Computed example of a mutant assay.
Amino acid sequence: MFEWDLGAIIRPGRAKAGEADSEGPRFALIMLNQPVKNMAVLHELWKGSCLRVAADGGANRLYELSQSTEPNTFDSLDVIIGDLDSLTPEARTHFESRGASVIHDPDQESTDFGKAIAHIRAASGPGPIDIAAVGGLGGRVDQGLSQLHHLYLFQPGAAYERGRIYLVSEESVTVQLKPGRHSIRVRRRGAGPEEDVFGKYVGIVPVGEPSVISTRGLEWDVEDWATAFGGRMSTSNHVLPETECVEVETSRDVLFTISLK
């Protein structure tokens, strides 16, 4: 059984500004080159992360925020990495002056997202480290598909041996479920409304290949249900009000996505 607590990395009040939460999961943060509108989630991810990396133009997004409504909040950026074709001189100067390293990787066979993942894993040593990527699934369709591709590409093996990757967009969190049984915590017993970070909408999408899934805790649960592109697909499902953990059993890799409040 794989266990997930998706809210652990974005639950409000986990850490003080600029400090990683020693009681929370160890994870690194990647800022992608997409506009950020859900500032509450970005703040919590920033506070809780142990390493903060901008993928090329992702630094521009942080710089724009630091020059407008969020002065000094994101100055603790650790690394900017990529082919640097999008990084502006202003953003580079700003973050370099505050201690960030700028790494130029001109390899055109890899994306800036992939370079950021590789850097985090190299810098973090041989053990697994989870990664939250902010800005996933926004903007152009080809970029969104590329980000989903990275969930498959950078989580090889059967058991997340290098760590788990979370795509965090303005409206949802998306993860890759490996073949097997998964228990995905979406609420905590006794938690107040202000601690609930997820909405009710859930999707289970077989991107790589057809799968057979069974679910528990959703409004429209299924049992041994074949799902594929061009066939049946579970989207816009609902978490039941009493559900604390959604259970999913899948025969092949699928994407699980849940909406944010």
Rank of each mutant, 00 (worst) to 15 (best):
G180L: 08
G203V: 07
V197C: 10
G144F: 14
R188Q: 11
V202C: 09
F154R: 03
V173T: 08
W220R: 02
T174K: 02
H182P: 02
H150C: 12
W220T: 00
P210K: 10
R164M: 09
R185Q: 11
G192H: 00
D196S: 10
P193E: 03
R189A: 13
G217H: 09
Y201C: 13
H149F: 14
V202M: 10
L151G: 04
K200M: 12
V222C: 04
A191P: 06
I184Y: 07
S183D: 10
R216P: 01
V212T: 14
T215N: 00
F198P: 15
R140F: 12
R162V: 11
H149M: 13
H149K: 12
G163S: 08
E209W: 07
I204D: 00
V202N: 06
D142I: 11
L153K: 14
G208M: 12
E194S: 13
Y166A: 06
H182Y: 02
G163M: 15
V186M: 01
S169V: 10
L145A: 15
P193G: 04
E209A: 15
E194C: 06
D221I: 00
S214D: 02
R140Y: 09
P193A: 05
V168T: 05
E170G: 09
L151R: 01
S146N: 15
G208H: 13
G190W: 05
R181Q: 15
H150Y: 05
A159C: 11
V207W: 14
A159W: 08
P206D: 09
F198R: 01
F198D: 03
Y166V: 10
V222D: 00
F198Y: 03
D221L: 00
E161C: 07
D221V: 00
V202K: 03
E209L: 10
G163H: 10
E171H: 14
L153W: 10
L218F: 03
E171Y: 15
H150T: 11
V141T: 12
H182C: 04
A191T: 03
V141R: 08
L151I: 06
A191F: 06
V222F: 01
V205K: 04
G199I: 13
S211G: 08
D142H: 12
V212Q: 08
P210Y: 05
G192N: 00
D221K: 01
Q176C: 14
T174Y: 01
D142K: 11
L167S: 06
L177K: 04
Q143K: 12
G208T: 05
I204T: 01
R185K: 13
G192Y: 00
L145E: 12
F154S: 09
I213F: 02
L145F: 14
K178R: 09
P206Y: 06
R140D: 11
V212W: 01
V186P: 10
E194D: 10
Y160W: 13
P210N: 08
A158G: 05
R164D: 05
Y152H: 12
V202D: 05
G190L: 07
S172C: 15
E171K: 14
E171W: 15
L151A: 03
V205M: 12
R140L: 11
K178G: 01
L153H: 13
P210W: 06
H150E: 10
Y152W: 09
W220N: 00
S169K: 04
D196M: 06
E170R: 06
A159Q: 09
G157E: 07
V168M: 09
S169H: 08
R185S: 08
R140T: 10
V173Q: 02
S211V: 07
R185H: 04
